[in-house]
């Protein structure tokens, strides 16, 4: 019997440009579901609940907002953890380089990786986090 494929949710608005960064993962048999905005991710919370890992960008639509501040991805992660009690591993891929943002992400039990990243490195990181 074959092992079920691991499901990854990728929340990122620039997938039209950087789609190939997950190509090694897809070639490795991982199923990638893409969501582009905070709203779209929250509307699909059950899909997130069922996934094995979440890849998350911090600067995603709706951009700077009174509710979300400069980093809607951070708001989303907090909502996942605190309101929906999602326990899945989360890897944050971002250009943000603020020590306090990093600390907040650590507190929310997220792995942090700077963008840009080599596709092979992302695959290694995902497999390390998933213990594959």
């Amino acid at each position: 019997m074959s092992t079920p494929k691991k499901k990854i949710v990728w929340i990122e608005d620039d997938t039209d440009i950087i789609n190939d960064v997950v190509r090694p993962l897809e070639r490795g048999g991982y199923l990638i579901e893409r969501f582009y905005t905070v709203k779209e991710a929250l509307d699909n919370i059950e899909k997130l609940r069922a996934c094995d890992l979440i890849l998350l960008d911090l600067i995603i639509p709706p951009g700077t907002d009174e509710r979300f501040g400069h980093y809607p991805g951070m708001h989303l992660l907090r909502t996942f953890r605190n309101d929906f009690h999602l326990q899945q591993p989360v890897i944050v891929l971002s250009v943000v380089a603020d020590a306090e943002v990093f600390q907040d992400l650590k507190d929310l039990n997220a792995e942090i990786e700077n963008k840009p990243i080599l596709p092979s490195k992302l695959k290694r990181l995902v497999e390390q986090v998933l213990g594959v």
């Binding site: 620039d14 440009i17 950087i18 789609n19 190939d20 250009v95 943000v96 963008k115 840009p116 596709p119």
Partner: peptide, 19 residues
């Protein structure tokens, strides 16, 4: 930060050529 984001996104497109 936003300009950095725009630039890094394009660099990511280049790094993806590793594939």
């Amino acid at each position: 930060e936003k300009i950095t984001h725009e630039i890094q996104t394009r660099i990511q497109g280049i790094l993806n050529a590793e594939n």
